[in-house]
Design a protein around this nucleic acid. Structure first.
Lengths: 217, 217
DNA sequence: CCGGTTTCGCTACGCCTCGTAGCGTAACCA
DNA sequence: TGGTTACGCTACGAGGCGTAGCGAAACCGG
């Protein structure tokens, strides 16, 4: 009996692998994902074809279909790897931490393979629940972890008050995450304007002090 | 000599139309855009085909290609019409105005034809400058006008200080726009969580007072 | 009323991509 | 060595893309 479903192939979900038979080439996985990003840069989402990706990666097209159900899932995994480098170094203050993570996040979004791939899979996920779940675990949850860490770090420093109850803490946390990630994505992809040091400083000032205080630095 | 380019067809850019010959059917335009939205709901972006749209609209496929260069531009125009209803009623205070526009904006994004279409064309625009410009003039600029109006309204009320110089005013304005629009879009499409009254209130409180004040209401 | 002009519906076409099936071979394990 | 799985390759039907060509319809100026 072969594997019931093509299943999730990439290393991220390496669950029960049978001990018999020829193992899947890990090099092929890496080559396919790299080829996918390369094709995203040159062709964008709509003109990207799986046959072209297979050709670039030096594997057969059938190998590609054995590991990923389709174009959507492949691109999610290819883009997700870009976010592996996202970290949150401790810069001493909440303001500095926010500026730092904003600039790092924006640096990833500035790469064309992320620009053209990310929004496309989000669009597809509106009619595909399993794809949305894949995006959530592979990309979104990873970013969220950073915001959670930065918040509790600021609370240890005394820059933010402790949360009164866990329910309110969760809601406040989700809100902050959407504001930070959404603002950077919108600035970068929709407004198509650069997220540079000036913008990061202005954004941090707004997030910390709000509109009521002096909006201009 | 026929028209040099297929040109921008929809009513939005109705420039120099020749006075001779059979006029283009305005009813066909409306039917095509409505059919596009209907197909977006049922099929989403990737499975939407122009042949299917033509069939739904009751026009020939060639008619469709005579008016729009391709799928991208057609969907931009179809989605843009959804934002026509976006307004900013005066609710007496800056906080109430923000909550109102957030909820109205979210109501549009909750419609499946907007969800699946908007992100897709934004993704495509990363490699197509003319498409990005089309999105900017048809969709983004329209939203921006509302934020500009709300800001000056709040300044007349004395809720916000006047801007020191025009350059800082522009930068502050662009920032606010990206934060508001980006946060709502991210919450709605990426986090896939509802933008309800509670979220709108929490977001407004954060935007006005910042993280420094009490984050929980 | 009529000739010029443009749009429209329809059919047909070559090109490409999709996703799968089938086969022989290669790699790994007990 | 035999069993099992992955791989490369070829081939295929299905379907969308975007265009060309045709005759008919609609509108305008003379």
């Amino acid at each position: 009996m072969p594997r019931p479903t093509p299943a999730s192939p990439a290393g991220r979900a390496g669950a029960g692998r049978p001990r018999n038979g020829r193992p899947r080439s890990a090099a092929a996985d890496a080559a396919i994902l790299a080829a996918t990003r390369e094709a995203l840069v040159e062709l964008g989402w709509s003109r990207l074809t799986l046959g072209d990706v297979a050709l670039r990666a030096g594997v057969a097209k059938t190998t590609l279909y054995r590991r990923w159900p389709g174009k959507n899932e492949l691109v999610v995994d290819a883009v997700a790897e870009l976010f592996d480098e996202l970290e949150l170094p401790d810069r001493g203050s909440l303001a500095a931490d926010i500026e730092g993570v904003v600039l790092r996040f924006a640096a990833i979004l500035a790469r064309p393979e992320a620009r053209s791939g990310l929004m496309a899979v989000v669009a597809e996920s509106t009619l595909d629940d399993s794809l949305r779940e894949r995006i959530r675990t592979s990309i979104v949850e990873r970013q969220k972890r950073l915001v959670r860490e930065g918040k509790s770090r600021a609370q240890r420093r005394g820059e933010l008050p402790p949360d009164p109850d866990p329910e309110a803490a969760d809601r406040s946390f989700d809100l902050i995450f959407d504001v930070v990630a959404g603002s950077v994505v919108h600035r970068s992809l929709v407004s198509a304007a650069p997220v540079d040091a000036t913008w990061a400083r202005d954004f941090t000032a707004l997030l910390l002090a709000g509109l009521g205080s002096a909006p201009a630095r």
